[in-house]
Structure formats: C-alpha cells, structure tokens
Simulated assay, not measured.
Amino acid sequence: MERQKYITRSIILIITILFSTHLSFSQSPYRDPIYKAYSRGKMDKWFELMHSCEKNADPNNFEEQLELINYYYGYTAWLIGAEKDDLAEKYIDKSEKIINRLLERSPENPTLLAYKGAYVAFTIGISSLKAIYLGRRSMRYIDKSIELDPENIQGNIEKGNSMYYRPTAFGGDKGKAIKYYIRAVESFEKQGLVVNNWMYINTMTMLGQAYEATDQIQRAKLCYEKIMRIFPNFMWVEDELYPDMLKRNNL
C-alpha cells in the first residue's frame, strides 16, 4: 500500500514538472519575438533577445537556463553557417558550461544529453578534422538521450541531424534522418509546442529538405506547403526552398 502511494506521488510529481516546464516556456517573453526574428531572418534581433535572456535568466532556474541554451543553439548554428567560427566557438563554450553544470544536477536528462551531443557536433562543424575522435562522442550523448526517452524532441532532432549531415562513409543516411525528424515533429504536435516555435518550424524545414534530398519530391512539396500554411511569411521556405524545388523539378 505504501509502495503504491509512493508510485502515485512520483507520477504526480513528474507530470507537474513536465507541465510547469512547458507552461513556463510558453509564457516566456522571448518565445514569440525569437520566432519572429527567425522567420524573417533577422539574426541581429535574435542576438538582442538572446542577450536580454542571458542577462535575466536565473542561474538556479532549470527551465530558464534550458531556454537560454536553446537560443545559444540556434545562434551558434547560424554562426557556423555564416563561417563566423571564432564567435561560434565562444557560444559553444558558454553553452557547454551551462549544460555541464545542469548535467551535474540531472545527469540523465535526455534533453541536456542531446544538447551536449549537438554542441560536440558543432565543434566538428567548425573543424571537420576533429570528426575522427569527436564524432563517436557526439553520438554517445545523442543515443543515450533517445535510449532514455525515445520520444524526446531534442534527441530525435540531433539524431536526424547526425544522419543528414554525416558523410555516408561514416554512417550518414538521409533516408534514416527522415524517421527521426518525423518523430520530433510528431512530439512537438502531441505536446502542443507548435505555435510560434522556431524549433518546430526548423525541424519541419529539415524534414522537407530530407525528403527532397532522397527524391521524395511530392512529400517535400507537401511538407513545405504545410509550413507555409501554418507559418505564413517564413522567408526561408517561401522565398527560397519551395520555389527552388519547384523550378528544379519542373513543377
């Protein structure tokens, strides 16, 4: 009887923590403007918002620190794509310090482990020579995340990214990436984390690109059209990816 009461209390506590995490993020003053900055390609505005979050986030508040990591993550990915490697390394370092500190408190948190794997992968993105010894390390964190929670959003995004970007000779497989992107998208939708969520729209976009890269053109088309229907005026898809795909495939 006592064991049953303990299990019941534990379940209630877990549900409460999960609900409060999603609620606090949805109520964040940064979520909507960060999405707007992302959708319009205004990374200068993203930087301003991220810097404000950095100044105001409570170091002892897990959810606020996780939100800050998320904004660092998006900005770091953009810096690497823009070949601003020195600045990217600065944000990798800042992010890893927060992640490592949080992992000391929650060593089996699947989202933190996925971010840890992602930032190791960012380092590879800056210097591909490091892939030889960092690639497996990155995958250990990501695989552990999915092992702990097969539906974890960040874990599935990072597994998808690793499959998409890794060379075929080293285990990359864009077809397999689709499976993980779909799982992440479905988790976003099941948890009601869709509206004005830059990570959701980014994952949908990666799914569309993976469909196109594997010659599933009709699915790519439908995916891009879904994005434009849910997120009108998302410049990357509306002005670039979708029209370019139509032109390439004579659609």
Rank of each mutant, 00 (worst) to 15 (best):
N156Q: 11
L251F: 15
D93N: 07
R136A: 15
D239Y: 12
E225D: 10
Y72G: 02
N249M: 05
Y38I: 01
G171R: 00
S187N: 03
N70D: 10
D173A: 01
I230D: 10
G41F: 05
K5A: 05
M235N: 15
P232S: 14
N196F: 06
K116F: 08
Y72T: 08
R219I: 04
T168A: 13
N156K: 05
N56Q: 13
E89R: 08
Y119G: 01
D149S: 09
Y73T: 11
K45I: 10
R9H: 07
K97A: 11
G135K: 00
T111W: 01
N61M: 06
T111Y: 00
M50S: 05
N250Y: 11
N61P: 14
S10G: 08
I69Y: 06
R219F: 05
R40L: 10
L49N: 02
Y115G: 00
V237I: 11
I142M: 02
L207F: 00
R137I: 03
Q4F: 10
F231S: 06
L13R: 13
Q154Y: 02
N196Q: 13
K174V: 05
R136T: 02
E64S: 08
V237N: 03
A184W: 00
L13D: 08
E96Q: 14
F122L: 10
G192R: 06
M199K: 09
R40A: 14
S52A: 14
A118M: 03
S10E: 13
A177G: 05
S20Y: 14
L18Q: 04
I201C: 01
